[in-house]
Computed example of a mutant assay.
Amino acid sequence: MLVFYVPVDDTERVLDAVLATGAGAVGDYRDCAFVTSGTGQFRPVDGARPAIGTVGELEKVAENRVELVLDRSLRGAVVAALRAAHPYEEPAFHVLETVELDPA
């Protein structure tokens, strides 16, 4: 599973880039994702080149949390697509391992 945070206005573009790699496939469905809204915050420090905000100042941004599944074999391509499409210098994201359930 991939979870990432992205400014609201950039969500569709970044999600499209990640889905283009094949992520978001669930059985016979494609382009599956879950998106929730919230507020992200960060403070760029010396050496940062923020796309939003100013070095040394706390920034709060309307962001979406996006969750989607991906096959393990796609991880490298998915993370590369996320980093290339994301507007932030250092996008926040998680790659989570999921377990297969035994069929009942």
Rank of each mutant, 00 (worst) to 15 (best):
G40R: 01
K60D: 03
G53Q: 06
A81K: 00
V78A: 10
A80S: 13
I52T: 14
E12A: 15
N64H: 15
A20Q: 01
L82K: 00
P44R: 14
G56W: 07
T39I: 11
D71A: 14
F34P: 06
L70E: 00
V35L: 06
P91L: 02
L74T: 12
H94C: 10
G53R: 08
S73K: 12
T39L: 09
G56A: 06
V79A: 10
A48K: 08
L68V: 01
T39G: 05
A23P: 01
F34E: 11
G56F: 06
E57N: 10
D71K: 13
F93V: 07
V26E: 03
D31I: 05
R49G: 14
V61Y: 09
R65M: 04
Y29S: 13
V69H: 00
A84P: 00
E12I: 07
G56E: 06
V95P: 02
A92Y: 01
L70R: 02
C32K: 07
T36E: 01
C32H: 06
G38C: 09
G24S: 07
V8M: 11
L96S: 05
F34D: 12
V45N: 09
R30D: 14
K60N: 04
F34G: 11
D16C: 04
V66G: 00
T21A: 03
L19A: 09
S73D: 14
L96I: 07
A33F: 07
V14W: 00
A23N: 05
A51T: 14
V95A: 11
D102A: 14
V18N: 00
H94K: 08
V66K: 01
D31G: 11
L70F: 04
L58N: 04
P87E: 05
D10F: 05
A48L: 11
V69S: 04
L74K: 06
P91M: 08
E100K: 13
G27F: 13
E63D: 02
P103R: 14
A85M: 03
F34A: 13
V6S: 00
A20D: 05
D28Y: 13
V99R: 13
L58S: 05
D16Q: 07
S37M: 07
T11Y: 02
H94F: 08
